Amino acid sequence: MSDSVKIGDVAIGDGLPVYVIAEIGLNHNGSVENAKKLIDVAVEAGAQAVKFQKRTPDIATPEHMKATPRETPWGTMTYLEYRYKVEFEQAEYSEIDAYCKEKGVVWFASPWDEPSVDFLESMDTVAYKIASASVTDLGMLRKIKATGKP
């Protein structure tokens, strides 16, 4: 067992400098411009990485919640509609990837379902963060383990 792991090119472990990961999650509200502002703040604060969340809304939204009305910045919509509104896809993550490279910070995400792991692998993310709600999703955990990434 190794005493350290690598996220990108940086070793993390006992006796090594602190590695700061800024949580962006869904705080971008589905806006790449907001995400870029959050990335800027993270870089200014000294973070080496930023972390997002990735979901397949139709899979990750509980059935009993899908049709539940929710007040959002865009008005009332179903919880499922809201989940789709704040979810980034290929184009948005490609823009975020390029922006993070420009700013010298890495990004990765917490996947919430197996297709999201496949998506993040297609984006060649450097690591995964397991959401506490996902610690019992053995299929997803096995899929993440198979990537060989921390």
Rank of each mutant, 00 (worst) to 15 (best):
M1Y: 12
S2P: 14
S2K: 13
D3L: 15
S4Q: 11
K6Y: 10
I7F: 03
A11M: 01
G13H: 11
D14M: 09
D14K: 14
G15M: 14
L16I: 12
L16H: 03
Y19D: 11
Y19L: 10
I21V: 15
A22M: 07
A22R: 04
E23R: 05
I24D: 10
I24W: 07
G25V: 08
G25Q: 07
L26M: 10
H28D: 04
H28K: 06
H28Y: 01
H28W: 13
G30M: 02
G30I: 02
G30D: 01
N34A: 13
N34Q: 09
A35I: 10
K36A: 08
D40S: 11
V41G: 02
E44W: 04
A47H: 05
A49K: 09
V50W: 05
K51H: 11
K51I: 14
F52S: 02
K54G: 01
R55M: 08
T56M: 00
D58G: 02
I59Y: 03
I59P: 07
A60R: 00
A60P: 00
T61F: 09
T61N: 10
P62G: 10
P62M: 08
H64L: 01
H64W: 05
M65Q: 12
E71D: 06
T72F: 05
T72M: 13
T72R: 04
P73F: 00
P73W: 02
P73Y: 00
P73H: 00
W74N: 00
W74P: 01
T76Q: 14
Y79D: 03
Y79T: 15
L80M: 07
L80Q: 10
E81K: 01
Y84L: 03
Y84H: 15
Y84R: 13
E87N: 07
E87P: 07
E89Y: 12
Q90G: 00
A91T: 08
E92M: 08
E92Y: 02
Y93R: 00
S94W: 05
E95V: 03
A98K: 14
Y99N: 07
Y99G: 13
C100I: 03
C100G: 03
K101T: 08
E102T: 06
E102W: 00
E102S: 03
K103E: 10
G104L: 05
V106H: 10
V106I: 15
F108Y: 15
S110K: 07
P111N: 05
P111C: 07
P111V: 09
E114F: 06
S116E: 11
D118E: 15
D118G: 08
F119W: 08
F119S: 04
S122T: 15
S122E: 14
M123V: 10
M123I: 03
M123T: 01
T125M: 11
V126T: 09
Y128C: 05
K129Q: 13
K129E: 15
A131F: 13
S134H: 00
V135Y: 14
V135P: 06
V135F: 14
L138P: 10
G139I: 02
G139P: 05
M140C: 13
L141C: 12
K143M: 12
K143V: 13
K145D: 06
G148H: 04
G148N: 02
